[in-house]
Design a protein around this nucleic acid. Structure first.
Lengths: 169, 169
DNA sequence: GAAAATTGTTTTAAGCTTAAAATAACCGGG
DNA sequence: CCCGGTTATTTTAAGCTTAAAACAATTTTC
């Protein structure tokens, strides 16, 4: 079967239009808009109501799941940010008394980072509110919408990862 | 009809669980992951292949759609970033010869920003590639998936906007 | 037409972010 | 034990981002 066997369909004015990817572009722009809209509102509320930034909150969320603490490298992988970024973030959270850093007992290069009691208590208060905000922001979607969106985003994530890493990782 | 008329269903162990919003939280985390994954890859490719940042590219994209130029305020609204942010971004793009700024003839406070011929030509090269990257990243979704996702994201956007602005705007 | 409100832009201070280079400690042979 | 490679972290330089304050020009209102 040669290429010429494929019949030309109604859309074959394709001479001046190598590939039309405008739909994908619009999809991406809409995804980005949603993400930015929600993230922006979360940042705003965290700042206004709890005087905390999103990166600080994210870091504390990771630590809350690891009662025994984590190293900077672990945090860096989990949060998908650079090591250097974390150095500064951790410095500021230590300074504000939310987290503790102590040199690992088994590896003098590494530091174990953990929430202070104050940090944990403050985080949990914020996290409770945060969960309500998210529910509010997604309030316009019914359970079926949520399920469908979840599935399509899983597919999107897989698709993007595939394109990013070329199958491996 | 009083509240007591509502029968207790199977899920009513709700005593220790005021509202369960974990599904929405997972949905949000997945949306964020998708967005960050794709945006990160786009940033990386823009930098590696064209030595340009995403904000610069976004700014040029706005200008490309407005041949007669735009003011900083217009750009600020379109791009949804702060004015102060734009001042710096524009400074750097003027310095690199991609855009022009001239005082508005009708309003001495305002400046008209527009692409230089070099800026436009460079932008269009990049934009072509960019569109292909997006198509590649979303390649795992068929047309129906894309249509469904588009619809659900529209709903999400509406829902979030509603929660952000409380109906108005 | 002058005061008041609004609009357009810049400055400032603080924090976030990255890549790349530097430093330091570990680990696995030989 | 020491050499080379790896891993953990920090530093550096540059750019992005914001909110708030400042300033300047325009428009509105009386």
């Amino acid at each position: 079967m040669t290429i010429s066997a494929i019949p030309l369909d109604a859309e074959t004015n394709a001479v001046e239009m190598p590939d039309d990817h405008r739909d994908e572009l619009r999809l991406w722009l809409r995804l980005l808009t949603c993400s930015n809209l929600i993230e922006g509102e979360i940042r705003r509320r965290l700042r206004d109501r709890f005087n905390v930034t999103l990166p600080r909150f994210d870091l504390m969320a990771q630590l809350d799941k690891a009662p025994d603490g984590m190293t900077l490298s672990d945090l860096s992988k989990r949060m998908m940010v650079s090591n250097g970024n974390l150095t500064g973030l951790v410095d500021r959270l230590v300074a504000s008394g939310h987290i503790d850093r102590r040199v690992s007992e088994t590896d003098r290069r590494a530091q174990m980072i953990s929430l202070t009691p104050m940090g944990q208590s403050e985080f949990r208060t914020i996290a409770g509110e945060h969960e309500n905000w998210i529910a509010e922001l997604f309030g316009g979607l019914n359970k079926k919408d949520q399920k469908d969106l979840m599935r399509l985003l899983a597919k999107t994530k897989y698709s993007a990862r595939h394109a990013v890493h070329g199958d491996n990782e």
